[in-house]
């Protein structure tokens, strides 16, 4: 810990304008590519909705009003009401928090575990590399969604298990990227130099190599984020995962799907659109995130 603070002091002391530089770099990445800018705006909007949405919604997402069931979008109910008379707009907004929470924590877990596993395999090789490689192959050999279904069905229908299942099926992607990126840098010049400077092997892996693998990992991260949302929604859609009456996009689409035939399209359309927007945002975010963490992009 002391070393980390020391390094940061060294940086901070010598670069009073480090924050300003980062800000300038952020501004450059945003202005150089309008798509990236759009993605960051959408992402920020989604985070704000997740944080403050439940306080701002006009109706209680769980309150049922039987006299108002299945009303089309109107001034009172922007996205209409569902079969129990619940306000669809409020439910879509409130669901943002849960969906983001599931996907962010699932992706965070698989990022940390996958990166650690892949990095060790790529750096030291040997039996751990072989063992972890076959383990990942085993995961990849399953149809991933079916694997997630199996895990949730076996372990129980809780949010925690959805997160774990999503994390497990995403694990191989991070582990593979991390392994490849680490193994090409294992004997790079600056790594040899770090050995000569007296760094231990673990420290070299953690502080010299891993930060340099961030740019490709970031792309993977944001792509997987969209995927994780879809996965969580998919599990709920088939009845595994979040249980009604909790507001969640996947469940809402599943429940709404029954009513599309009878003409009540708004039940499934709006949560589906929210889901699509979220996936779209995270997929666009990838390039921008990579540009942000790539030192070569700085002038």
């Amino acid at each position: 810990m002391t070393d980390a603070t020391l390094t940061s002091q060294l940086t901070a002391g010598s670069r009073p304008s480090a924050f300003a530089r980062n800000l300038a770099h952020f501004r450059y990445v945003m202005t150089s590519n309008p798509v990236t800018f759009l993605a960051f705006v959408l992402c920020a909007g989604m985070i704000l909705v997740a944080l403050f949405g439940p306080m701002l919604v006009p109706h209680d997402p769980l309150a049922t009003l039987s006299d108002k069931a299945l009303k089309p979008p109107s001034w009172d109910h922007w996205f209409g009401t569902d079969q129990l008379g619940r306000d669809v707009f409020s439910r879509v907004v409130v669901a943002t928090r849960l969906d983001l929470l599931i996907s962010v924590s699932a992706v965070a877990i698989s990022f940390v575990c996958g990166a650690a596993m892949g990095a060790c395999a790529g750096y030291w090789g040997g039996w751990f590399d072989k063992l972890s490689g076959r383990f990942l192959d085993t995961i990849m050999a399953f149809p991933l969604f079916v694997l997630a279904m199996g895990i949730v069905a076996a372990a129980g229908n809780t949010i925690q298990n959805i997160v774990i299942a999503t994390a497990i099926i995403n694990l191989p992607f991070y582990a593979r990227v991390a392994r490849a990126e680490v193994s090409i840098r294992r004997n790079a010049g600056y790594v040899q130099a770090a050995r000569l400077s007296g760094n231990s092997e673990l420290r070299i892996l953690m502080f010299k190599i891993l930060p340099n693998t961030l740019p490709p990992m970031m792309v993977q991260l944001s792509l997987n984020m969209g995927w994780a949302i879809l996965n969580a929604a998919g599990l709920s859609f088939i009845g595994l995962g979040v249980r009604p009456p909790t507001a969640e996009w996947g469940i809402m689409v599943a429940e709404g799907a029954n009513y599309i035939i009878s003409g009540e399209w708004w039940l499934a359309l709006f949560p589906g659109a929210a889901l699509m927007l979220a996936v779209f945002t995270f997929n666009l975010l990838g390039d921008g995130l990579r540009d942000l963490v790539d030192p070569q992009r700085r002038t």
């Binding site: 940086t11 010049g189 600056y190």
Partner: peptide, 11 residues
Amino acid sequence: ESLNPRATAAQ
């Protein structure tokens, strides 16, 4: 190649 791309010269 022998300098860490993320570290400043001072670091």
